[in-house]
Design a protein around this nucleic acid. Sequence first.
DNA 1: CTATGTAAACAAC
DNA 2: GTTGTTTACATAG
Length: 880
Amino acid sequence: MTCHPSPLVQGVFTNQATSSTISRTSLSMTETPMLANIVTSPDSGFSSPTWHCNATDSTPNTVGHKSLPRRLNQDFTAVAAQIRLENFLSTTKRNQDFLRSDSSTESGADPHQLSTRSALLERPMYSYMDLIKMAILSSKDGEMTFQEIISWIETHFPFFKYKAKESWKNSVRHNLSLHADFMKIEGKKKGAKWKLADYARKYHMKLPKTQYVTKKTQVPNVSTNSKKGLKPILPKANFALVPLTSIGHQILQSSSHLSPSFGHNLLPSSRPIASLGHQMFSSSIQPMSPFPQQIQSSIRPSASVGSIASLESLTGSVVLVGSTVGQKSSPGSLASHGSSSGVVTTFGSSSGVVTALGSSSGVVTSLGSSSGVVTTFGSSSRVVTSLGSSSRVVTTFGSSSGVVTSLGSSSRVVTTFGSSSGVVTSLGSSSGVVTALGSSDSISLLTSPTVTKAPQSQESVSAHRPNFKQQTGKVSSVSHPRIILGKSRKSSRQRQKVTTSQTSFDNRKSLLNGSKYAALEPIDIQILDGDSKQETKIVFHLKTAKNSLSENQFFTSSVDVLSPTFSPHSERYSVENNLPNEGQKNMSNTGNRLTLAPACNCRIKKSSKQMYYSERRLCCNTENEPKCKKLKLGESSLKGLPLMSIENISNSIKDTHEIATPVVLKENRNSLNSARNDGSLIVSSKQVDIEQKNTRSRRKQILVQRIPDVSPPKIISSSDYNKQETDLNMILNPSTSSVLSNERIINPEHCSITPPAGGGRFMSSTPKHSPMEYRMTDFLDVTPDQPVSFNQSLSPQNQPILLNDIPLNPQSQQNSFNDIPNDSAYNQHISNVLDTSLPDAISLDLSLLDSIETYLNGNLNESFQTSRFSLTQDLTKHCF
DNA sequence: CTATGTAAACAAC
DNA sequence: GTTGTTTACATAG
């Protein structure tokens, strides 16, 4: 991450970059008219806000697009875009002509032309989403059919016409469907037109982070010095490579469409973010802020140093932000803060005391703010990346001779957060006391609030995670025993196989059975038509958990994935953040969850066919905890869904939560995986067929029905949980009620595992899995009831294999057992049972063994006594 | 973890 | 076959 020259950096450092260090990216920017026009022209409708920003148009009031002044709004209408587009199009037209002529004069082409032509045939650095938006905006009426979009892209980006695989069109199709930005104009049966959603009409061209290179289109790197293989940990010192490739981009990009106050959390001053970026990369190295005298002298830049990236000060004592570059850095210039022979980049603010920020012989990137005391913040001989904020005391935050990446925030005391001689990746936040997290050769940590000391070695960590030990040799996660199934989001090589152990499976089941859990379902879904405002009101009503801790406990429902179509996997949306500034303090940077109050309004994209909702996580909070902890700061995976303010959520919880409407507990790929110590649990994944039209799904579906508003808010105590609803004066959704009454559905032990229904290639390619091979993407389905008991008319091999065939209560079923006419057939039947279903069953209920033993002792006739012994032995063998 | 790219199943026409 | 929807999975950052 830290070593990729980005267009951003390169572009700004044009004056510094020598030709020998120019990458293909910058070549494209400077020599390709098409790209240069898009990326750098401030007049282009597509110009990035990154480049476009100045002190005027990025003042807080103009950042969020909802509050854009009329002038800017008009700026981005399709009509205006059209005008700007002409410039762009004429350029690309010339490009095309150039391409054509060039191909006919191949031999005589001069090198410059050749390189330019090849640049034109390179894959453009725009995402499909960008391309589609460009296409649609270029049309007069802002509408285009799929075919027109394809043609436009082919015309203006020859790569797709001449070099791309045919499947790129599929990707365009995919993007059209996927993104809420694109809306299909209803009416025409074939070749419907697509347009941009209102909110997406303002076109934000993102800066390409890196040149996209596919395996097929990969071109050898122009850079003469580059060799294939590992990237150096330390950057080359001959130009100012500030590792902002992604981070800076993200910040800047976010600033353009998030709430105006967003920047305050990341940056100390009220100056626009963009101007900070400019400041960081400008050649001006004068500090902007009044530093204490002794500090200021200590960071006096040496003449030979490339640049001081930025200086920011705040309300507190000290902030040091400095970048000393490479070999030429003058020892002593940062003496009191450690001499850096590499790059130190510190962003952020402190309202407290910071003793040392970044003393490094490598790269230290500290992002975040401390409102408390930070003694050492990144002391590294190599790469330390600290992202996050401490609001209290941090003694050491990343002290490493290797790579430390700390992401997250501590709100309390952290003594050591990543002290490593290898790679430490700390993700997460500690809200409590952390003494030491991760002193190891290779640890990735997800911290929990109560960690006092993390494992010190790989071995000890592996002891916590026996399943991972064999897989990777590295520990991917977890500082305390936690059961994780399925794939870890590591590299494919490290990725956890889908297989898991029975032990783990049982542990998970015990978690599910024993934990507090709650269920919820939307009981009121309403789709309002119309392009202007498509709103769907979703009301979640909750049932409190078993074993509720106290009455004043409450739940917030957190919807992991609430896409325009509620697709479980439409995770590609970002959100418009309407949260007030106060709310952001409570937002976590972990997870992509939108926290919804039990009742809230969401704007969604209308889907004529089906809606899905899934992956609802229930968080059990106490009154003292933040009401909204799962929101990601400034972004989310949701697009077009206005988030509720913290205040609203809070009020909603107080006012409307409480009606108990449980729903089937059906595991999805995250449910057991997410059973956590904090009592939260993801429950249920359902498909909801709004209009009962979709017969595609083969899964059991439960229709969402409106519940009459008859139930007063009510909190159910744990002792009441299993009572009849009538006793509780509640009226349940009938379908829910019937589901709940079916113990086979509620009880995961009666569930089988099947892959989810719907489209997707796994339907035909993925075999079913046994519980031994649990896949995250599988579901637990209710095992269908089978005909009971032994059937004499069937051959032994064809007997239904049912646990029920062995009576749990022999006394009451004596007759049926004594009537068994054919010992050998029954033997075979029992044998089948043992071979298949019994092991699992017995592991769940060992008392079964006693029952059978009792029965065998008292009730079998003489001829059965011989086989009895072996049966008992078999049972024992299977059980233990 | 997010954003993006790719392949493909499947439905409806 | 085309268009659209959805899923799985890969990968960079």
